[in-house]
């Protein structure tokens, strides 16, 4: 069964149609890269799936269960809305860490707030909170930030901040983790550490969708590549096929321009 199914997603901002019917499926543990020039709708696609934008048309399924239907007129309860949100994690281009919290607090905040809704929270409060801290520390350790637990985001390099934001998303155990150009705001020499982290997540079979301009990285890490242009998917397949032997003229042009840079 597919862990994620996106069906015929449309999104317009006023009269500007950004997504013109995008559909794709993902299997558990698959890594999908989304390529395409700026303005092709990659980021909007991510934002629609993660409910930061509301698509005008289309459906989204997680584990075969419908989580979004644009035709559904009845507004969802906030609680259902949030439960749906927790299927997905999102790593932003600009990190969006909470500046007033240290690294550990940034990672723990959401799980702790969520734990308050558990029915056994009052009874086992200390245990639950400890568990969250242990888990957060373990994730940060895996990501190589053990020595920065009590530093504030402003004291970290861009690469470290982005690693914290990856840890923050992982702490909620999302079914699919989305990356919106995770290295675009970083100095070129810092992109490597982020790509290494993503690669290690791929080896742990975490299902990921990565919007990126790093062609070599996409070829390396992804099981499948989608190429978008003007709000539609114009090419889809194994990275070797799409990146090295593109069939579509626009894909070829895009890749050529990137390699000319």
């Amino acid at each position: 069964m597919n862990i994620l199914e996106v069906k015929n997603l449309h999104k317009s901002f006023d009269s500007n149609e950004v997504l013109k019917g995008v559909s794709f499926n993902m299997r558990q543990g698959e890594v999908l890269s989304v390529l395409g020039s700026s303005g092709s709708g990659k980021t909007t696609l991510l934002r629609c799936i993660t409910s930061l934008e509301k698509a005008n048309k289309g459906k989204i399924f997680v584990d075969g269960e419908i989580v979004f239907d644009a035709d559904e007129t009845k507004p969802k309860k906030p609680f259902d809305e949030r439960k749906k949100q927790l299927n997905f994690g999102l790593v932003f281009q600009s990190f969006n860490l909470f500046p007033q919290y240290n690294v550990l607090e940034n990672v723990e905040l959401a799980p702790k707030l969520l734990a308050k809704e558990r029915q056994d929270f009052k009874k086992n409060k200390q245990e639950i909170l400890n568990e969250i801290t242990i888990n957060a520390k373990a994730i940060l350790d895996r990501i190589g930030l053990t020595d920065k637990l009590y530093n504030y985001p402003c004291e970290l390099s861009g690469g470290q901040q982005q690693r914290v934001s990856i840890a923050r998303a992982l702490a909620l155990n999302p079914k699919v983790l989305f990356f919106d150009e995770p290295t675009s705001a970083l100095d070129p020499e810092l992109t490597g550490e982020i790509l290494r982290v993503i690669r290690s997540l791929a080896s742990k079979k975490i299902t990921m969708v990565i919007v990126t301009h790093e062609i070599d990285f996409a070829r390396n890490v992804s099981d499948r590549v989608i190429f978008m242009s003007d709000g539609v998917i114009i090419e889809e397949g194994k990275p070797q096929d799409v990146i090295d032997n593109p069939e579509n003229e626009r894909t070829r042009l895009f890749l050529k321009r990137l390699s000319d840079k």
Binding site: T50, S51, L52, P78, R82, K83, Q85, L86, F88, G89, L90, F92, S94, N96, L97, F98, P99, Q100, L109, A110, L113, L114, S165, R168, A169, L172
Partner: peptide, 25 residues
């Protein structure tokens, strides 16, 4: 806006985003 969006994708309620993330800043 990114602070609100970060809170939202982490499953926080609007009140939690305001009181736990935004207010202090």
């Amino acid at each position: 806006k990114g602070q609100y969006e970060a809170g939202q994708v982490l499953g926080m309620t609007k009140a939690q985003i305001f009181f736990k993330v935004v207010l202090f800043q």
